[in-house]
């Protein structure tokens, strides 16, 4: 379950994470209006996906583990969407 990833791949993933960190800081200094948060969260999700797939070995994990991992994200999505449909549409 954990034997498949080489040191070189781990280093490349880490390099990609540092690059994305630099990108998110750089983008924060550009005025994109309400798109700043969209860009910042897109980069954060990309970083999280890299960590989950490579560092947490979800790439090599079985179907059941993948379903459970996605379930956490799915319920979070339910909470965000249902709450914001209220708060963003008041008045």
């Amino acid at each position: 379950m954990s034997g498949g990833t080489s040191t070189g791949l781990y280093l490349r993933v880490a390099a990609a994470l540092y690059l994305l960190l630099g990108l998110t800081v750089a983008c924060a200094f550009i005025d994109m209006g309400s798109f700043n948060i969209v860009v910042a969260m897109t980069i954060a999700v990309a970083k999280a996906v890299l960590v989950v797939l490579f560092f947490m070995h979800l790439r090599q994990a079985g179907a059941l583990t993948r379903v459970v991992a996605c379930a956490g994200a799915l319920w979070l999505l339910f909470m965000c969407v249902l709450t914001l449909t209220d708060f963003l549409t008041r008045n």
Binding site: A28, A48, V52
Partner: peptide, 20 residues
């Protein structure tokens, strides 16, 4: 790694609001 992921989201949300 999960604790790392939490911080990945906290950094832009806490520090990087309209820094321009």
């Amino acid at each position: 790694h999960f604790v790392d992921i939490v911080w990945i989201f906290l950094y832009p949300l806490i520090y990087l609001i309209q820094v321009y």
